[in-house]
Nucleic acid binder design. Structure first.
Length: 776
DNA sequence: TGATTCTACGGTCTC
DNA sequence: CGTAGAATCA
């Protein structure tokens, strides 16, 4: 097969470049992924480079998976041993440290390749605990701010001592203490945070020549995707992996650099030619994705930036529709406009996929509400993911504590969950003891037991807990992940805690736990052990959860990187929101916001809408605060746009959702769930069980407007059956038997009843599905 | 000690 | 509005 076929001359150039450094400046939609995958196939097939000697690194698992698939197809499904290696930076480093990381022990005391990965929650717990120990509280500095400053320092190769020396104010000096504690507690727990994964891999390759040689021999070619978003350690990693051959090909677009706040250094791409004077530079400037209007608008916006190499994208596509602009009176109306437009567009073209992009996650809520009013299914990418749920994290904490006795943070998380009589005072005493002797909590509690340093009650409770953990550790030997999890669930009392919990959430928590058990069983079938399972849980990203087939996706602009959609809405284009208020002071930050805007706009293939609201509430119950149109809106050339705002059209906005009957339907339709893919969303919960969700009437065609005459909604059938269920009424449930209604919420199909069942406690049920009967 | 209620406060983006 | 931590009561 000829891997150059069907490529334009620049793409062919890039694919056929084999030896030495190569920089591909690939504009949005210029066939970047195609070039990378074809180049890999070309190296393997035409130049006989062994598959495993090619390493390609991306930022998300999703991108890596997609490329892996495409490469496999090009190569005709190679055997596992001959596949090129496609990976994210983080998982590559984890694998390196687990497989070949032992020598790091001489650089990082206590390190073993069985290290634990600490995610954000664990970092947070750690910092909280340090604050307590050194007598600080959040008034000193917010936990997250402290974490981010520590992370920044680490990424700039500062030790706590450096940090302390360079501090100029007392606040920073104090923070240095937190930093020092943070590092030593990580080491004590043999834990690495996300930054460490990269930093320690770099340190190992830097100081250990054997490992460096090994990896330089192993990989003959290195490719890096999204190079504009690499940070310093990723840059060093690149250099260390290519000292021998310099066969490095980086692909990026400085106009799409949007992770400066995370340490991405745009100079990496701007200065690539300085770092590698012999580098070839190839520009891909033909766009294959968007219409001319979309491309030109986005280009006009980003042209306001100074810090760029400058390039002009062009396309053979037709002009297409104009960019739709919508100025809403308030955020609710903006959301309704979006939902309404989506209905119309999907009515025309049901196969199209739509993305609604926003700057901050909280904006999704209102848009979700509007979409629900229309009965439109949607998928929220990001927000609260499965692995962040408390019950899932609890079980993973057990798993980590079982696997790694010195992991104090996870041990503390579960020591009294479920409640087993180890209260605050006991925990504090153990923490103090541990701190004074710099011992892990596990050791400290063991010693305290021996010294009879605790009261009888606390000692009994703690002893029982220690016995539990020891038993679990013994049982875990040689068992599969799911078996270990099941043992934890049963023996710790966690399952019983949820089963006896009368609150309605407990049920969905059990569901989540079952899902976790399934995931564990699947992992075990693939041959994964406990560590691999935990690694996987730590390294999944929100964007990885995107379902390509969902008709409507809601996601942040950051999560939209690398994706494309026929129809795109960018919402909330207001000064202070987008560009975000925190970036208004510095020009460089403002440019990053502008690039973000560029990224969002260039996701669109056919239609692009930009919306903003003249007023918006910051808090749920707060006031409507006025806002000003984003400067980015003014940077879009007027001749390319079409104003869709009600005023400019000389008539009142006719949103179906503002009509009476849709509002009524919406009232009955207020779910409590946050995301479509969450079990909290009742509609989806039942849809998966083959029960149709209650749907508001489909919106009428645009013209002529449907009469808005209020007419009573017929009482749904289910309501009749439950008519007698007023508060205080006696009812019967097929499973729980007799109960008393305490509370009514909603009406019709969505009538929810809170019922007290003797022996089962309180249950919140949806009358329609629960099969409740009024008791005579 | 543990469960429940009360109150104060606050929100970029993410591997 | 949602959450975290404090205060309160059993």
């Amino acid at each position: 097969m000829d891997f150059l076929q069907g490529l334009n001359p620049q793409q062919q150039d890039a694919v056929s470049h084999v030896d030495g450094p190569l920089l591909i400046l690939a504009g949005a939609g210029s066939g970047k992924t195609r070039v990378i995958t074809h180049r890999i196939a070309h190296l393997v097939r035409s130049h006989r480079v062994p598959g495993p000697a090619v390493l390609a690194v991306t930022f998300t698992n999703k991108a890596a998976d997609e490329m892996r698939e495409r490469v496999a197809k090009l190569l005709g499904d190679p055997s596992p041993g001959s596949r090129p290696m496609l990976s994210t930076f983080h998982s590559f480093c984890v694998r390196l440290l687990r497989r070949d990381g032992s020598p790091l022990a001489s650089l990082r005391p206590g390190f073993t390749p069985a290290f634990t990965i600490y995610d954000e929650d664990e970092q947070l717990a750690l910092v909280k605990s340090i604050y307590r120990n050194v007598g600080l509280d959040e008034k000193f500095m917010q936990y997250r701010a402290a974490i981010s400053r520590i992370s920044h320092a680490k990424n700039h190769q500062q030790t706590p001592a450096d940090f302390y020396r360079q501090s100029t104010d007392p606040k920073t000096s104090k923070l240095a203490v937190v930093f020092e504690q943070y590092e030593s507690r990580l080491r004590q727990a043999n834990a690495l945070d996300f930054d460490d994964l990269l930093l320690e891999a770099v340190r190992l390759l830097h100081h250990d020549q054997t490992t460096r040689d090994l990896y330089n021999r192993r990989f003959e070619h290195l490719m890096i995707d999204e190079y504009q978003d690499t940070n310093r350690s990723q840059y060093q990693l690149m250099q260390l992996l290519t000292v021998r051959h310099q066969n490095v090909c980086v692909v990026g677009d400085e106009d799409q650099s949007i992770y400066g706040w995370r340490g991405a250094d745009i100079r990496n791409i701007l200065d690539f030619e300085k770092d590698y004077p012999k580098a070839r530079v190839i520009r891909l400037e033909q766009n294959y994705r968007s219409t001319k209007n979309i491309l030109e608008s986005a280009g006009a916006v980003v042209a306001h930036n100074l810090e760029r190499k400058g390039k002009t994208l062009w396309t053979e596509a037709h002009s297409g529709a104009k960019i739709g602009l919508y100025e809403a009176p308030d955020a609710e109306n903006e959301a309704l406009f979006i939902a309404d437009s989506i209905e119309r567009l999907l009515a025309q073209d049901p196969a199209d996929r739509v993305a609604v992009l926003y700057r901050t996650n909280f904006q999704s809520r209102q848009i979700e509400e509007a979409l629900r009013r229309y009965g439109r299914k949607y998928l929220v990418v990001g927000g609260f993911s499965f692995y962040q749920r408390a019950e899932v994290k609890d079980l993973l904490a057990y798993l980590k504590a079982v696997a790694s006795p010195q992991d104090s943070i996870n041990l503390l998380r579960i020591v009294n969950t479920p409640a087993r009589g180890i209260g605050k005072t006991t925990v504090e005493a153990v923490e103090r003891y541990a701190l004074e002797r710099s011992l892990p909590i596990w050791e400290a509690s063991g010693q305290m037991m021996g010294e009879k340093a605790l009261g009888a009650r606390a000692e009994a409770a703690l002893g029982a807990f220690r016995a539990l953990m020891e038993r679990l550790r013994a049982e875990a030997e040689g068992k599969s992940v799911d078996a270990v999890l099941r043992a934890i669930l049963n023996e710790s009392g966690y399952r019983r805690m949820l089963e006896t919990d009368p609150s309605p959430e407990a049920e969905s928590r059990l569901e989540n736990i079952n899902e976790l058990l399934n995931a564990a069983a699947e992992a075990a079938e693939r041959g994964e052990g406990i560590t691999e399972f935990l690694d996987h849980a730590a390294l999944v990203a929100d964007a990885d959860g995107l379902d390509e087939h969902a008709a409507v996706s809601l996601l942040t602009l950051h999560n939209a990187k690398g994706l494309e959609f026929p129809v795109v809405f960018v919402a909330g284009l207001e000064e202070g929101l987008f560009p975000h208020s925190r970036s208004l002071n510095a020009e460089s930050m403002l440019e990053e916001e502008r690039r973000l805007c560029y990224v969002g706009m260039t996701r669109a293939r056919k239609r692009l809408f930009l919306t903003w609201a003249r007023a918006r509430r910051r808090f749920g119950g707060g006031d409507l605060e006025p806002s000003v149109a984003s400067r980015f809106l003014k940077e879009v050339p007027a001749r390319l746009t079409e104003n869709l705002s009600p005023e400019s059209r000389g008539r009142q906005v006719d949103l179906a959702a503002e009509r009476w009957e849709v509002r009524e339907a919406a009232k009955r339709n207020t779910f409590t769930g946050k995301t479509y893919n969450s079990l909290e969303n009742i509609a989806q919960f039942f849809a998966e069980r083959g029960v149709a969700a209650p749907r508001p009437p489909a919106p009428a065609p645009i013209e002529p407007p449907a009469p808005a005459a209020p007419k009573p909604v017929a009482a749904p059938a289910a309501a009749k059956k439950t008519r007698g269920c007023a508060a205080g009424a006696a009812v019967r449930h097929p499973r729980y038997g007799r109960g008393t209604v305490l509370r009514r919420e909603g009406e019709g199909d969505d009538l929810k009843l809170t019922i007290s069942f003797p022996g089962y406690g309180l249950k919140k049920l949806i009358a329609k599905f629960a099969g409740i009967q009024a008791e005579e």
